[in-house]
Design a binder for these strands. Structure first.
Ligand code: MN
Ligand code: MN
Ligand code: ZN
Ligand code: ZN
Lengths: 141, 141
DNA sequence: TCAATAGTTTGGAATTATTCTAATGAAAAT
DNA sequence: ATTTTCATTAGAATAATTCCAAACTATTGA
């Protein structure tokens, strides 16, 4: 086992990308590594770009956006809209909701089992519910 | 009663603006007229600008943004973030939630009495809950 | 193994919502 | 009526995101 546990998942990452119908390019493998190694994360395109640079990975911002959208379309990421200024991508695709710290721009998961929404009226005819999002907005006190 | 019921509220609008600490300028009076005469509405800056133009009111987009933010800060409007591409302003400031028709970009109110969120964990220390937003995202089926 | 093909990356330009600026205009105060 | 304070505006500036066309790379299948 010459490789650190960080690199352990490389084959898995490639399988993941293939499963999503995406070619496992150098960029995609490295980005999915950053995204999925290390637990649940909420990050913007800019944040991921920065993190990649930090890790010595050279990827264009266009590729960051492409990859985030492709992974989202494949169901491996979820896009979270809480701030008009920027989009967050969530590596946790399980059922859960969010605290949003408006002062920080930080998202915190609320496990889906803990929170419940009751009394949602029937969806207007011709439509179906795609998702129910709850955002608990927080402010420093 | 020479004036149509549309114009009836002019004095009221002026009082409303004064109450918010805003000078009742021609533009603000006309914009608040469009906003608050005619029930609950959800609209973007661009939509309001267009509507003003339609009504023969000449207002710059900068003033539209200024006014929407001032009214929001004064608590007469509420900003709704459901789409990364644009900001909606809601003339209904009562407690309620929303359906969001993603295909149309349309918001529909869900009365606050009908819907309930249970099981929200305590806010992290140092923070307080400012608001709990529920968005039921709909898709054409 | 090696083209041929289809899909990917990239720098930089373009787009779009929103904000900023500095000059001009209007409301409130004196 | 004058002065002072606040508001409006055109257009420039910002910032997130998307688009583009050229250069690259993974995959295919001879
Ligand atoms: Mn997209
Ligand atoms: Mn603002
Ligand atoms: Zn999350
Ligand atoms: Zn509403």
């Amino acid at each position: 086992m010459g490789e650190s546990s960080q690199a352990t998942g490389k084959a898995h990452l490639i399988a993941r990308l293939r499963g999503a119908g995406l070619r496992p390019t150098r960029q995609r493998v490295e980005l999915t590594g950053l995204l999925f190694e290390g637990g649940d994360r909420h990050l913007t395109a800019e944040m991921l770009h920065e993190e990649a640079a930090q890790a010595g990975i050279r990827v264009s911002l266009a590729t960051i956006y492409n990859t985030l959208h492709q992974l989202t379309d494949a169901g491996l990421l979820r896009q979270v809209t809480v701030d008009a200024a920027r989009s967050y991508f969530d590596t946790n695709i399980g059922e859960h909701q969010h605290f949003y710290l408006e002062d920080e721009g930080t998202l915190i998961d609320i496990p889906g089992a803990e929170i419940a929404v009751a009394g949602v009226p029937n969806a207007p005819s011709g439509t179906r519910v795609e998702r129910v999002d709850v955002v608990v907005r927080l402010r420093r006190d």
